[in-house]
Nucleic acid binder design. Structure first.
Lengths: 345, 345
DNA sequence: TTGAAAGCGCTAACAC
DNA sequence: GTGTTAGCGCTTTCAA
């Protein structure tokens, strides 16, 4: 087997506990022995065994990642990679690793969380999404297990540490921007309808409309699950409404691009016939892929901050860790157009 | 603390070892005690402790993931997410978890691998990239530690289990397609120049040219690192060559889209003025985002297969596990055009 | 078919 | 300052 603390102790002529103290850089060990022990470690190529240490410490230096049920969808969305990059950096800085838990159904995912938690595999958990009535949250709360939520909690916002954007405001700003360009018929393409994020954004969208004296229309509102399968049909229906929208607020860049292509194939051009503002500005803007007017929700920083919050929580258990709202900012490009006279019919 | 095997043993009136056997479903335990023990587990809400089990078993059921140095670049590329999704599924099916190791420099990443391996954190390792002269591979080989490489090994291909596409052939087919459309001036936009994948594809590209009696030109060949910072400049230079290419073979969809946009802003349209074939058909095609003619290298399956191979390797140590070549296939869409008379000048 | 006990590699309380 | 010892929670010989 591999070289252990005992081997080092023997070579350095000390007790295993002394070696352990040297590893922890315990100040009560004399410099002389420290040097001797370190030489022995070097010589033998010793590396501490994480598992044994974890067992003794009751802590693994690992954070568990929980993704939403439809992991296929999630993985395919650039937002995911961006959050993950932030998480990874935030964890790495504090010497934590990330363990991924995936599953093909909510049940499987929940089981995975239970195993992670009760199995002692992770010190804390990051929920990469916020959904209404989430089983997992209730479970973690009931066990008083440290976790951080990415997205706003549906309930118990006071008791949960979370990292989120101000989705209400972001959607409202996006909608206002379109309204200010003279659009009266503005549609909303949301993310998954069970996500709190979608819910908040819808409220922001509707809020903006109402403040402009416009009544929200249900036939202008769509969710991701409807679009995933039959985007083309939905777009066709949209364009055959008696009052076709002239602008859309869209959940993310990916959907926006997809919608734009679909509309184009139906003869509806962006921005000439349809203005589009997307939320969650991700890699597309970074590499100047598209030229969407977009609200950058800074997902990298969201992930980064989530990791930081969780680590902090682990460092000072019991203490209430402040939730964080990551600021968004508006990025104007050229997927929108001031409304034309003929569109005002 | 949490409920342990001892608590269960006590409640069920058996020895801890018996409980352990029940967990392992040891056939030598009578059905009667099994039932009694399981009832006790149920009643107490017992879940085995992974760490303790790992220590006793000298195995963690965790696979370590190693990403290329420039993790920022990598994370932003949809290819990454797709491979990851495949890995995740392949691992999950066999009850393995994935542990991510990231770092901001090659040195940091290597250190991370050493810690994972010597620290006993993982049972095996997946290298998500193949680079020339990779330190990490030498290390893993020297310790005889199980690992699988995604991409073709630069050396020792016989001794290493790897999962790859036939990148040579893929690039050759892409190039041939363009040549068959009448293009004579075909450029190559590669990935990172140190990646074996890039190297192989370049060979395929050059091979196709040579078979058509065309001499490859260095000023038609570019690598990712050059483009990342100054894509616009590079494209400008390309267009101001005395003999401007009429077609490009591009490393992936993301770059292709980016290049297309850049060229368009310079007045060079796809496919009218420039035909483009991309490799690594990823999410873009899945959601019909773009209409690139592309070679689908099936990265999901690549990741999936890599996980499977590694798991198999762990199951039968010593045995030589067959490397896998994941087939690619050509997807014709509309980013290419038969060469026009006037372009043949 | 089951129990007792040793041990996986490390840490930490207690002793000197 | 350093050694001794008893766990951390589980598996696995060896005995019975």
């Amino acid at each position: 087997m591999a070289v252990t603390i005992k081997d080092v102790a023997q070579l350095a002529n000390v007790a295993p506990s002394t070696v352990s103290r040297v590893i922890a850089n315990n100040p009560r060990i004399s410099e002389k022995t420290k040097v001797r022990v370190r030489e022995a470690m070097e010589k033998l190529g010793y590396h501490p065994n994480f598992i044994a240490r974890s067992l003794a410490n009751q802590s693994t230096q690992i954070l568990g990642l929980v993704m939403p049920g439809s992991s296929e969808t999630f993985f395919n969305n650039p937002t995911f990679a961006t959050i993950l990059r932030g998480l990874s950096e935030g964890a790495r800085e504090r010497k934590y690793s990330l363990l991924m838990n995936t599953g093909n159904s909510d049940e499987e995912i929940f089981e995975g969380v239970v195993e992670m938690v009760q199995g002692g595999m992770v010190d804390g958990i990051i929920l990469m999404y916020s959904r209404m009535n989430d089983h997992t949250i209730t479970y973690l709360q009931s066990r008083n297990f440290p976790f951080v939520l990415i997205g706003k909690p549906y309930e118990f916002a006071e008791e949960i540490t979370y990292v989120d954007n101000d989705n209400y405001l972001a959607a409202k700003e996006a909608t206002n921007y379109l309204l200010d360009l003279g659009h009266k018929k503005v549609g909303f393409i949301g993310g998954h309808s069970k996500l709190v994020m979608t819910h908040d954004r819808l409220l922001g969208y509707e809020g903006a409309l109402k403040e402009h004296g416009i009544v929200p229309r249900n036939d202008y509102i769509f969710y991701e699950e409807a679009l995933r399968e039959e985007m083309h049909e939905v777009m066709q229906n949209l364009l055959s409404l008696s009052e076709v929208p002239t602008a859309l607020v869209v959940h993310d860049d990916l959907m926006a691009l997809s919608i734009m292509n679909n509309l184009r194939s139906l003869g509806c051009l962006t921005p000439e016939h349809m203005s589009i503002v997307s939320l969650n500005n991700t890699l597309f803007s970074e590499i100047s892929l598209s030229s969407f007017t977009s609200i950058d929700t800074n997902m990298y920083h969201t992930g980064y901050q989530a990791a930081r919050c969780l680590v902090q929580k682990l460092a000072s258990p019991g203490e209430r860790i402040q939730s964080a709202i990551i600021p968004h900012h508006f990025v104007e490009r050229d997927s929108c157009q001031r409304v034309q006279a003929e569109m005002l019919v």
